[in-house]
């Protein structure tokens, strides 16, 4: 059963003072916001005692000002960041869309990029082969699919990225902001696919500053501020 459960998750990381030949006064970041001092070290409290639970079919929208911890929370869920306290329990296959261009090479064609993106996401060659045409159809790139990725507009790149990320129907899909990049018809199409994913007992977590997008797509809304959960409705 697909689920996400976070219990008192905190993420505190030390700002490493890189060994450098520059003057000592220029090495440290200014204190403030979530940056504090612990002894002689500077630390960032990126998440603070975050707890929530999502079950199959939930679509959670993360909102909050810049630096609130939205992207950090997504990266904890994806496994890029290890929490420094608390537990994260995830059941289900996770895929993420943090940045349109990740895994896409500017010089390679769209078709080749689908293969590379698939390999990076851990797909087998058979799975890639099976899904290539479907991804091309969904992205509506037509003949552009055999042109280099660098020739694509932002909207075309977003369509290809979204089509590739959702093609293998991840049980948990994490998305950071970018979905607003496509045109209105693409956003409508993306919403339909997200509905389908959620209906197939999936979970979607979407971070955005766009309240209208969150309301349109999500069934739950979490407000984060300074790494803490302010509200979950």
């Amino acid at each position: 059963m697909t689920s996400i459960k976070l219990n008192n998750v905190s993420l505190v990381y030390r700002l490493f003072e890189k060994l450098t030949l520059s003057a000592p006064g220029r090495r440290r970041s200014a204190l403030g916001g979530n940056i504090a001092r612990s002894g002689t070290k500077q630390v960032v409290q990126a998440l603070d005692d975050v707890s929530f639970e999502l079950k199959a079919g939930d679509r959670l929208g993360l909102v909050g000002p810049n630096g609130a911890g939205k992207t950090t929370l997504l990266k904890v869920l994806y496994g890029i960041y290890q929490p420094s306290a608390g537990t994260v329990s995830i059941a289900g296959k996770v895929d993420a869309l943090f940045n349109i261009s990740i895994g896409f090479r500017p010089e390679a064609t769209g078709r080749r990029n689908i293969v590379l993106r698939g390999l990076i996401s851990g797909w087998t060659l058979a799975e890639i082969e099976e899904k290539v045409e479907e991804i091309i159809d969904f992205s509506e790139l037509g003949d552009f699919i055999d042109l280099p990725f660098k020739a694509y507009s932002q909207g075309m790149a977003a369509r290809l990225a979204f089509a590739a990320a959702t093609a293998l129907e991840p049980e948990i899909l994490l998305m950071d902001e970018w979905i607003g990049a496509g045109d209105a018809s693409f956003q409508e199409k993306a919403k339909r696919r997200m509905d389908e994913l959620a209906e197939k007992a999936g979970i979607i977590v979407l971070a955005s500053h766009d309240d209208a997008l969150i309301q349109r797509v999500c069934t739950k809304r979490m407000v984060l501020r300074n790494g803490r959960v302010e509200s979950l409705t």
Binding site: K75, Y78, G79, I80, A96, F98, N99, S101, I102, G103, I120
Partner: peptide
């Protein structure tokens, strides 16, 4: 950096 900060490879 973009791969390390955006994927779990």
């Amino acid at each position: 950096a973009s791969f390390i900060q955006g994927t779990t490879l």
